[in-house]
Design a protein around this nucleic acid. Structure first.
Length: 284
DNA sequence: ACTAGCCCCTGGGAGC
DNA sequence: TGCTCCCAGGGGCTAG
């Protein structure tokens, strides 16, 4: 379940090892992009053919992250867009299971997309049209965009409908947060996940914003979260799962100092939310 | 236009 | 030990 820190960690690795390399060849078994039978995706044989034609022989210029998406910019004015969804991993020059896409690079090393559940999506777009691409254009401001101020953060969220947990996870409000980080952020901010966005005071949004940045930066320092399947490009685990305060800690004691609450798990917006019913205040 | 809920997958864990 | 069932959750899609 790669979220912002995990995608960030992967892209950091890509930047270090694949920039400047030429992609000699592309291989895929078609068994990926489970959701995208009728869309532009390499599960479709003719799309893979087109993808290969565009990609083979080009040089990798740069890599970046937007929300949970990985962009790999090529020197032929095209960019590969990868979303790892739940169990996708990009690994460099390493034997792994569940290989569905393989790039052989000019140094004869391989960049591999491994994905147990085959949900990952890979597509390609002219670089100049990226901003209008359906996968990119709808995204809200990136959670770690330096231009995202506390005030902007508040303005992006307070008038949205639905529980704050779902609004934070909605990539169209703020891009990059998923289930684990929203649980952790709301726990530390002391905000109940079912709170109504328009009832949370602006000062509280300031705190959520601060906590969000702190937790995301901390997780990046830890190499991301590997409670589930995430691995960096060397196939190594991150450490953030060892610092979870609420996620995956149902029925355990709330770790906040002086709080005697018991962590509760409840489905919110179709996802399992973990929170402390005692110190996380419900604004409604 | 909006939204709740289903679905794409498969490994791992719980329960029997 | 081995079988069955349920769960993980990003996000596209569809029915209401």
């Amino acid at each position: 379940m790669p979220e912002l820190p995990e995608v960030h960690t992967t892209v950091k690795g890509l930047k270090k090892f694949i920039i400047g390399k030429t992609i000699k060849s592309v291989w895929s078994d078609f068994h990926i992009g489970a959701k995208y039978n009728n869309k532009e995706n390499i599960k479709n044989e003719s799309y893979l053919k087109k993808f290969k034609e565009l990609v083979e022989g080009t040089r990798i210029k740069s890599a970046e992250r937007i929300g949970k998406n990985i962009l790999i910019h090529l020197n032929n004015k095209h960019s590969i867009i990868i979303h790892m969804k739940m169990t996708g991993n990009l690994v460099y020059d390493k034997e792994v299971k569940f290989v569905h896409l393989k790039f052989t690079l000019s140094n004869n090393k391989k960049l591999i997309l491994s994905d147990m559940r085959k949900f990952a999506s890979i597509t390609i777009s002219p670089t100049i049209e990226l901003q209008n691409h359906e996968r990119i254009s709808k995204l809200g401001v990136d959670a770690l965009d330096p231009k995202l101020t506390s005030k902007k953060f508040f303005e992006c969220l307070y008038n949205k409908r639905g529980p704050i947990k779902s609004v934070l996870m909605d990539q169209e409000s703020i891009a990059g947060l998923g289930n684990i980080y929203t649980d952790e952020i709301l726990w530390e901010s002391g905000v109940h996940p079912l709170s109504h966005p328009d009832k949370i005071p602006e000062t509280k949004y300031k705190e959520i914003f601060k906590v969000m940045k702190k937790i995301l930066h901390f997780s990046i320092k830890q190499g991301g979260d590997s409670k589930s399947d995430y691995r960096n490009i060397f196939g190594e685990k991150g450490n953030f799962q060892n610092f979870h305060k609420v996620y995956g800690r149902k029925s355990k004691k709330c770790p906040k100092r002086g709080c005697s609450g018991i962590i509760k798990r409840q489905t919110i917006g179709g996802r399992s939310a973990h929170f402390c019913p005692k110190h996380q205040i419900m604004y409604k």
